[in-house]
Structure formats: C-alpha cells, structure tokens
Write a protein that binds this DNA or RNA. Structure first.
Lengths: 116, 116
DNA sequence: GGTAATTGTTTCGCTACCGTATCATTTGCG
DNA sequence: CGCAAATGATACGGTAGCGAAACAATTACC
C-alpha cells in the first residue's frame, strides 16, 4: 500500500517533523549523517564506506567523518571485515536503533496531526 | 484527514526522501536551515528573527547566519519593518518557493513508492 | 528628554565539515 | 615474489557553523 500525500501534506509533514527534530535534537546530526544512519538501519547489510559514499554521491572522507562522529555518539559501530581486511563493516547499535525509533515516532505523530 | 503511517513506512519515507535530497542537493542546507525555510513558507507571516529563534529553540545569531546563507542563495529575502524599525521581516522569494516545490515532489514521489 | 528595554547584527574563539590529495594496509594477479 | 588495484583513514587548507558576549539602532516609558 502506498502513502498518498498532497503537496501541502508532504511539506507540512516535513516541516513539523523537522521542527521537532531540531527542537529536541540531542545529537544535532547533519542531513548527510542522518541519511547515513537511516541507510545503515533500513537497508540490508553489509555496509561499507565505499558503498555508502557511492550511494549518497559523496566522497569517502565524508563517510569516515560521519562514522567518527556518530560512532562517538554510540549510534554506530565499526568492525574490520575478517574475510577482506581492507573492508570496514558498519554495524548497528542499540542506541542507534532507539534514536531512529524516536524519529519514527515523531514522524508518525506529526502525520497523525495532519489536516487535509 | 490524517496520514496514517506505520513505523516502517515513516522511516523508509524519511530515508528515501532524505537520500534524494542529499544526492541532488544543489544548496546543501543544514537541518536547521531547511526547517527555517519550511517555516517561512508554511506558517503565516510575519516572520522575525526573534520569533524564529524562539520557535526553533536556538539563539538569534543562528537565525541571522541562516538568513545570510539562504539569502545569498536567493531562497529568502530580508526587509526592515517600517512600523518598528528594529524588526526585520523575512520574506519569501520565487526561487525559495520553487525549491520547496521540488522538495514536496520528492516526498510525494517517495511516498507513492512505499510498500507496506 | 533621558534611561531602560528590545531587536537584529557582529565579533570572538572554537569546533566541525568540505573536497583534494596522499597514505597505510590488504588483496589480486601476473 | 612483485607490482598494481582497492579500501579506508589521514593531512591540509579553507569554509561555515556554533554559543556567548558585546554592539548599534530603535522604541518604550517615566
């Protein structure tokens, strides 16, 4: 089932959810960082630096820095790939899952408040 | 009418739309900047620096800087309030409206692609 | 008229991000 | 074995964001 949104609904949903994210943002993530985090948790693994860089259309240092930041926040974890030690496998954490769960709650909540 | 979203739908919608925003971002706006832009265009005017700062829960220089950046991109325009010359009235531009129109299209598009 | 309050901007020192280029490590392959 | 390719991290110079504090301009109020 698809979600049918009117132009007004789409922007209002984005606005109210973004507003609540900004107001209550404990971590103050960049749009890119948020995108990386969502990708790691929503797309089937494995996730590598190179793969993420290609998907987002950014350079590799962007991914490395984002992983540094979010890693120190506990939202993400890095592990060396034992099969191919050049690769770094990016893994999920409990704290990251909780963060996205809260984000989902905000979006659902604001969607519920939408008036057509 | 409200928009009923499942947790999975909410996060997938956010992910795919954010991804397309990052991939194609001509302007590379911050989450805060995007929020300010949406607020200006979706909430009835007038909009002032102080009002925006209070709404977003940030300091005034954050708003000033965001208006500087987005102003030089043509997304927003500043005017002095003639009634009370201490105030700055933030106004919309054609280019800003087009930018948000494209954002709305992306969200609608990704909502349409959602599978339950 | 003169002082206090209000508004938006600027300055300051700092931190974080950007892309390019380079590096270290590991693997692939002749 | 030896060299090229691949992967992720780092160095570098530059830009932009941050909060706190100070500032100029305007208005409110006694």
């Amino acid at each position: 089932m698809s979600v049918a949104l009117s132009p007004s609904q789409a922007l209002h949903l984005w606005h109210s959810a973004t507003l609540r994210l900004v107001q209550s943002d404990a971590h103050d993530l960049t749009l890119r960082q948020l995108c990386i985090l969502l990708h790691i948790y929503l797309v089937p693994p494995p996730h590598t630096v190179r793969g993420l860089a290609a998907t987002l259309g950014v350079t590799k240092p962007v991914i490395t820095r984002a992983l540094d930041s979010m890693g120190s926040l506990g939202l993400v974890r890095r592990t060396r790939d034992e099969k191919d030690k050049r690769n770094v496998i990016i893994q999920r954490t409990v704290e990251g899952a909780l963060y996205l769960e809260r984000l989902g709650d905000i979006i659902i909540d604001e969607g519920r408040e939408l008036e057509l």
